[in-house]
């Protein structure tokens, strides 16, 4: 936690230009505004800002542009391409799989967010209790969160394997489902297979944020309620839930955003198949661009999805603002 003064080497920059402090130097030179004035703030901010404009904002605008153009293998390398108006949008949205993908995306997001929230909340409440090792165990959950998504996809694909997967055997042993489920190859279950893996991945983050929210509730509120004769359920309903409203709001938005970023699990588990039965918008967009080279189509879906994500993110920012004020 501590570093000693000797290890840091203060003054190297300052001293070179720090003459006898009584010597007279006049106005700030251009160089000095960057060392001492507002120029420093501007410079530091611009580093990030310019980078994000070039590699973050510009690509979005470029996607919008491409969604209005004809972009395929042949025009890929051209700087100017023919404009086609909203033809790409009409084309993409009228494809037979469009409705299905939209539905899947909705199911994937709704199920993931709901289950992550409920399970994360339950776990947060459990580990909120005071017992030896609670903190360490809570931290260990994050191990899942830092794993590469593709590896997680591989592991779940193996665990959910139809013939000799451990999940099927567990279901059989516990008599929950005696026959084998071919999770990935059955169109009826493939989306749920990926959803399960995604719920697993998202639990730690939910748990972490909810734990922080729970820890911020003053203990004396519970004590007061207890004196008023409120039981555990009543305390949860009348104190915990209302006090967690802001956290829950922020968390739902964040979970939606993270779920819409999920790509690796689809790549590792089902490739959106069989026959698009587990395809979602963010994966479909990529498939169109990089597997069928229908870059205009991929861009069009990307534009629609980016709009959704930014909408949700704006809600999130709004809710955190509100939290700070209220």
């Amino acid at each position: 936690m501590k570093i000693s003064g000797q290890t840091s080497r203060p003054g190297r920059i300052a001293v070179s230009a720090l003459p006898d402090p009584t010597a007279s130097t006049m106005r700030l030179s251009v160089f000095d505004t960057f060392r001492d004035g507002r120029g420093l703030d501007a410079l530091l901010v611009l580093l990030t800002l310019v980078y994000l404009i070039v590699f973050g904002l510009a690509p979005i605008l470029y996607t919008v542009l491409m969604s209005l153009q004809q972009v395929d293998m042949f025009t890929l390398g051209d700087f100017s391409r023919p404009f086609v108006g909203f033809a790409n949008y009409v084309d993409v949205l009228t494809r037979p799989e469009a409705g299905m993908v939209a539905r899947h995306t909705l199911v994937f997001v709704a199920l993931s967010v709901a289950c992550q929230l409920v399970l994360g909340f339950a776990l947060a409440l459990f580990f909120q209790q005071d017992f030896p090792g609670a903190g360490i165990m809570r931290g260990l959950f994050l191990a899942a969160w830092i794993m590469p998504g593709l590896v997680v996809g591989g592991i779940w694909r193996w665990m959910l394997a139809g013939d000799n997967g451990v999940v099927n055997s567990l279901l059989a042993v516990t008599h929950l489902h005696p026959t084998k489920i071919f999770w990935m190859s059955d169109p009826a279950t493939s989306l749920y297979a990926v959803t399960i893996a995604n719920i697993w991945l998202g639990i730690p983050f939910n748990m972490l944020l909810l734990s922080v929210g729970l820890a911020a509730i003053p203990k004396d509120l519970y004590e007061a309620a207890q004196l008023d004769g409120a039981g555990p359920v009543e305390r949860f309903r009348s104190i915990t839930l209302p006090m967690m409203r802001a956290t829950l709001g922020a968390l739902v938005s964040l979970s939606v955003i993270f779920t819409l970023q999920q790509f690796d699990l689809f790549a590792g588990m089902t490739q959106g198949g069989p026959s698009n039965s587990s395809n979602v918008a963010q994966f479909w967009s990529w498939q169109l661009s990089f597997q069928t080279y229908d870059i205009a189509g991929g861009s069009t879906i990307a534009v629609l999805m980016i709009a959704v994500v930014i909408g949700v993110a704006t809600l999130y920012v709004r809710s955190t603002r509100h939290e700070q004020i209220g």
């Binding site: 990030t48 800002l49 994000l52 590699f55 973050g56 904002l57 510009a58 690509p59 979005i60 470029y62 996607t63 491409m66 972009v71 890929l76 390398g77 955003i257 819409l260 970023q261 790509f263 963010q282 994966f283 967009s285 990529w286 661009s289 990089f290 870059i295 991929g298 861009s299 879906i301 990307a302 999805m305 980016i306 994500v309 930014i310 949700v312 993110a313 999130y316 920012v317």
Partner: peptide, 22 residues
């Protein structure tokens, strides 16, 4: 602005980046 850049899914921005980098 920074938050908005954070939430963009990679699989969606990769298309324009690929074309642009190309």
């Amino acid at each position: 602005f920074v938050l908005m850049m954070q939430v963009l899914p990679s699989s969606l921005v990769v298309t324009p980046l690929f074309v642009g980098f190309n």
